[in-house]
Write a protein that binds this DNA or RNA. Structure first.
Lengths: 217, 217
DNA sequence: ATAAATTAACTAACTGGTTAATTAATGAGA
DNA sequence: TCTCATTAATTAACCAGTTAGTTAATTTAT
């Protein structure tokens, strides 16, 4: 028998995963408001009722997708700051980790940003999920640690003084924005997929220097 | 008589404007997919049929809102680059113009980015509207002019060498992202409206230096 | 036999959009 | 200046199609 009297995986196991995958595709390209359950069912190759069988409602399905994508990306990039590397090195690791993590699914940042704009309450759920309840507090202590780091660098004359909030926003902006604004770049700079990829290569190599240089005293 | 046998402004002129205003509010907070015509009608205080009387369809109404917001912001910030100031000064003007233009309606960048993510084709229409057909070409010549500027600064040793595309993305990212990511900042950094406003003041003052410093050789 | 997985068919509510009728400015002519 | 036809503005009621969600029956692994 399986684990706990729980009869599992009858006909075609993996259905739930297939549904989630289809939902991800549809939600990412259409948003929660624009997505249609029917379209998701079709893309998953199942009956529409199955979506409700596995995920009670459209909203819960949307939340599941959002949670999955959010928790997949955030930790990978936060990891760079968990190490005890030098600040210089942390910045470089962050930039590389983010670009590497996101480049194979470049619509995700735009989707997450959009979804957060229209449903800001989702952030609470997501943040609790990641930090384990009380995200604001976890974040505050993170920011304070960063403040100490930055002040120390400023004290020894290695960096100019900067508020940790400004620093964080700058760092994240420079990483996230090119993805979020990809449709704009595509049209306005005439970037096809290939050009965008080269653009990212260049960026990955140069961005850490750009940031460190900006912080030079 | 009026201009051309065209009887104008009967009962309550300004209805169209009121509808557009209501539509703006609803679309900005819910997106095209999430918005409901009924909600817009209610917010405008008119019958739902009037929305169709003035703007044939939901899509056309959404486009009208998008166009209005897009054309309101873009030129004001592009203006900074039209001048013949020094590059340093252009950067400063751009940062100031953007923050000043957007700070009183801080959801607009998030809305525009989200809308472009889900309906990238809207960008074409908008860009044509602003540049007067053939936006890709207008943009290319703009980028090339910028390239010359940047190369010149690099040649005289005033700046490090940087591709105009990277430069543009950096500049815009640093300006736009704080607004687009506002819900995140609000929760994660615990910023209320007031704290956000102070954050913007600080940013407006420091960001030009940050960018110029990053470009130092 | 049992219970999970899956489906076809359905429904109740809602959606964007239409229609036909009503109201009120406007300008032309008597 | 007083009709009066004309035309724009506005509404209530309606419609057809779609939507998320349900149900009851069927399949299938154990």
């Amino acid at each position: 028998m399986t684990s706990a009297g729980r009869p599992r995986a009858k006909r075609d196991s993996g259905t739930e995963a297939r549904i989630l995958e289809a939902a991800r595709a549809v939600f990412v390209r259409s948003g929660t408001g624009g997505a249609r359950m029917q379209e998701i069912a079709a893309e998953a190759g199942v009956n529409q009722a199955l979506l409700h069988y596995y995920f009670r409602s459209k909203d819960q399905l949307a939340q599941a997708v959002f949670r999955e994508l959010g928790t997949r990306i955030v930790p990978s990039i936060l990891g760079a700051f968990a190490s005890d590397d030098s600040l210089d090195r942390k910045i470089e690791r962050f930039v590389h980790a983010y670009i590497d993590a996101v480049r194979e699914s470049p619509f995700i940042p735009g989707y997450i940003l959009a979804e957060l704009h229209f449903n800001p309450e989702r952030l609470t759920t997501l943040a609790e999920q990641i930090t384990g309840s009380d995200p604001a507090n976890a974040m505050r202590s993170f920011v304070e640690r960063l403040r100490v780091d930055l002040n120390q660098q400023a004290a020894i004359g290695a960096m100019r003084s900067i508020a940790p909030e400004q620093f964080l926003v700058n760092l994240i902006a420079l990483c996230v924005f090119p993805f979020a604004a990809r449709p704009v770049l595509r049209l306005l700079l005439g970037q096809d997929d290939d050009a965008f990829s080269r653009f990212l290569d260049e960026r990955r190599a140069e961005l850490p220097d750009f940031i460190l240089n900006a912080l030079r005293p």
